[in-house]
C-alpha cells in the first residue's frame, strides 16, 4: 500500500469514526432535543469532516486559499443553521 493510499484510508477511517460518533450522539438524545452546546459540537465535527474531504479527497492541502475559502463558506452555513436554534 502506497503512502498516498494509506493517507486516504486514514482520512476515510477518521471520517467514518466521526460520522458514527455524531449518529450515536444524536440517537442517544432522541426523541429529546439537543442542547445548544451539543449542536455547536456537532457543527464543529461536521466542519472537521469537511476539512478532511477538502484536504485528502479533493487534494487541496497545498492550496490553502481555496481550502480555507471553502471551509469558511461551509462554516458560515453551519453557524447560521446552528445559530438559528439560539433564537
Amino acid at each position: 500500500m502506497s503512502a498516498a493510499t494509506r493517507r486516504l484510508v486514514r482520512a476515510w477511517t477518521t471520517m467514518m469514526g466521526l460520522s458514527l460518533a455524531l449518529a450515536v450522539s444524536a440517537d442517544v438524545h432522541a426523541p429529546s432535543r439537543l442542547s445548544l452546546g451539543l449542536m455547536a459540537v456537532t457543527g464543529v465535527v461536521v466542519l472537521m469532516k469537511c476539512r478532511i474531504i477538502l484536504a485528502a479527497y479533493l487534494e487541496l492541502e497545498p492550496h490553502r486559499g481555496m481550502s480555507n475559502g471553502l471551509s469558511a463558506l461551509i462554516g458560515l452555513t453551519l453557524v447560521i443553521v446552528v445559530g438559528s436554534f439560539a433564537l
Partner: peptide, 25 residues
C-alpha cells in the same frame, strides 16, 4: 481528477446536509 472533484463535491454537500436535516433538532 475532474470527475472525482465533482463526486467529492456531492460527498461534501451530503456531509453538511445530513446533520442539518436529520440530527440538529
Amino acid at each position: 481528477q475532474t470527475g472525482a472533484a465533482f463526486w467529492h463535491m456531492v460527498d461534501l454537500v451530503w456531509v453538511v446536509v445530513f446533520p442539518c436535516l436529520y440530527l440538529l433538532r
